[in-house]
């Protein structure tokens, strides 16, 4: 039982202290979706003030943990807290992995949730935060770099029509472990906005 103010960045995002950037990104997406004014899971539990506190803590945790230098210095200044919680988390983590093992239905479920969609620019941001360069994505997806760049720049003029584009978007999203559907939706919105103009 720890109040929000007492929880470490890792506890706020419910990740282990050795979580990699992908895990942190996913945990952040999940936390953002969960502690959102319209989320049914928080209904009747938190006051507006508490929600603001939690949301601020989530943003702060994400900001620090996604930045290598900030995370390092946070680790140093909070080492006593993190060390302790890391041993606690370890048991929790082993519980979770057994949870996953015994459940077929949860294994193919990614925990990125919600209404949030990805677009080219957010994709680029996530990719850069993960420290993956376009070449690696290109090698993984067999999509040429030029096309990937166009996707990130949201250059609808030079990109193929949505019917053809879909496959590329799907492959790219998967390469980053993101929900492909959300990228496709984001792009649909882009096309729609463009059409209006």
């Amino acid at each position: 039982m720890k109040r929000i103010e007492e929880q470490t960045h890792y506890e706020i995002l419910e990740v282990s202290p050795d979580a990699d950037l992908k895990e942190i990104q996913r945990a952040y997406d999940h936390a953002k979706e969960t502690f959102h004014a319209d989320s049914p899971a928080i209904y009747s539990l938190f006051s507006e003030e508490e929600m603001r506190k939690i949301q601020a803590a989530i943003e702060e945790a994400y900001r620090v943990l996604m930045d290598e230098a900030l995370r390092k210095s946070y680790h140093q200044s909070h080492s006593h807290l993190i060390e302790r919680s890391s041993s606690e988390k370890q048991t929790e983590k082993s519980v979770k992995s057994s949870e996953i093992k015994s459940s077929l239905s949860f294994t193919d479920l990614s925990i990125e949730v919600g209404e949030m969609t990805y677009r080219g620019r957010s994709l680029k941001q996530i990719r850069e935060k993960l420290g993956i360069d376009l070449k690696a994505i290109s090698a993984k997806t067999k999509i040429n770099i030029k096309t990937l760049e166009l996707i990130e720049e949201e250059d609808l003029e030079h990109l193929p029509a949505m019917v053809y584009l879909k496959g590329f978007l799907k492959a790219y999203a998967r390469a980053l472990n993101l929900d492909a559907q959300k990228l496709i939706e984001g792009y649909f919105e882009l096309f729609k906005e463009k059409g209006k103009k």
Binding site: F35, P40, I42
Partner: peptide, 18 residues
């Protein structure tokens, strides 16, 4: 999305009740 509400409830319980 409904399925994921379960995970959100888990997170909410952790934050609210500990």
């Amino acid at each position: 999305k409904d399925i994921e509400i379960g995970f959100s409830i888990r997170s909410a319980c952790q934050k609210y009740f500990g």
